[in-house]
Amino acid sequence: MTENRRVIITAGASGLGRAMAEAFLRAGDKVAVCDADPDAVTAIAQDIPEIRAVVADVTDKTAMDAFFAGLEDDWGGADVVCSNAGIGGPAGHIEDLDFEDWRRCVSVNLDGAFLTCRWAARVMRAQGHGLLLLTSSTSGLFGFPQRSPYVAAKWGIVGMTKALASELGPAGVRVNAICPGAVEGPRMDRVIEMEAQARGVDRDDVRRGFSEGAALRRFVTAEDVAAMALFLASPGASSITGQAMAVDGHTERFV
């Protein structure tokens, strides 16, 4: 069935964002993505020319304003906006962390969400419908040692979701967060390497800890997360708002 929704995804040229972009495109939607990585933007534009892809850093207000203005001129609005951009930030005891590393992590995760949601809220309130999806993490649901910048930012995303759901609900706009667990792929490989160095342990032990800490005893995939995004955008989820939906194989413990 052709949906023909207007879908915008930040950090949408690779990883979770690209998986969501491809899933919405397969569903018959128009899809636009922005991403700070020029190589990733070039790759998705070449691989999937149907997707509108633009280089823009979510922390750059001027770049994001231009990205959104172009879409508003061409599309007249948006039906689904996925605020997906985020970085893992540094790992280590808080007393050993650099302030600029902290600020960069919080900026990408929260400032980027603010700029994205501010535009989407204005457009969706005016049109009387829409869905905002914010990418948080299971780190936004549980405390996690030696990752305080990332955890704080992802808890902030859940808080923003709750606030915006209440703020925009009367206008017919839904707002939900998706909280992935350990997602198989290059980004998770980098996180494992970083945490292994910070904790002084073998990276295989860190990887084992992530998988054994979930009830399903495995990592999830980017496609699992994209499937949740599609569900939340479907008529079957029309009464779901203000929720933080975990896609993590059920986190039981941090090993």
Rank of each mutant, 00 (worst) to 15 (best):
P186I: 08
G130L: 05
G128K: 13
V123R: 15
T62A: 15
N84G: 04
I51P: 01
D73R: 05
S136F: 00
V108H: 05
V31G: 11
R5V: 07
D65N: 11
V255L: 15
R52S: 14
F68D: 01
P149I: 00
R208M: 11
A19E: 00
P186E: 14
D60M: 09
E95W: 10
E72K: 12
D65P: 10
A246I: 01
V31W: 09
Q127R: 15
R118C: 02
V33E: 11
E100F: 15
A21D: 02
R118F: 10
S166M: 14
V33W: 11
D79I: 08
H129N: 15
A23D: 03
V225N: 12
A63Q: 09
V7A: 06
L216S: 07
G130D: 02
V55T: 11
G242Y: 07
D204W: 07
A177E: 00
T221F: 02
E212S: 15
V220D: 09
A66K: 05
L97W: 04
G249I: 00
A32M: 08
I44C: 02
E223M: 06
L16A: 04
G209Q: 08
D60Q: 12
A13V: 07
T59M: 13
G130E: 04
G128H: 12
P170S: 05
T138G: 03
D101H: 14
G112D: 00
V173F: 03
I178Q: 01
W155F: 07
A27C: 10
G242H: 05
L131S: 04
R125N: 10
A214S: 08
G12C: 10
A198F: 09
Q127S: 11
D111C: 09
V108A: 12
S107F: 06
D37W: 10
L230P: 13
P180H: 04
A13P: 03
A19C: 05
G236S: 10
Q197E: 15
Q46T: 06
L110R: 02
F68K: 03
R104S: 15
A13K: 09
R103P: 10
G159M: 12
D189N: 13
D60T: 05
R203I: 07
V175I: 01
E22P: 01
D57I: 02
V41E: 01
S234Q: 08
R199V: 04
V58C: 10
A177Q: 02
D35S: 11
I87L: 12
D189P: 06
W155Q: 04
L16Q: 03
A43L: 08
G15N: 10
G70L: 03
A233T: 04
A13Q: 08
F67N: 05
S211K: 14
A113L: 08
L168E: 14
A40H: 14
G88N: 07
A227I: 11
G249H: 02
D205Y: 04
A36M: 13
L132V: 12
A43V: 07
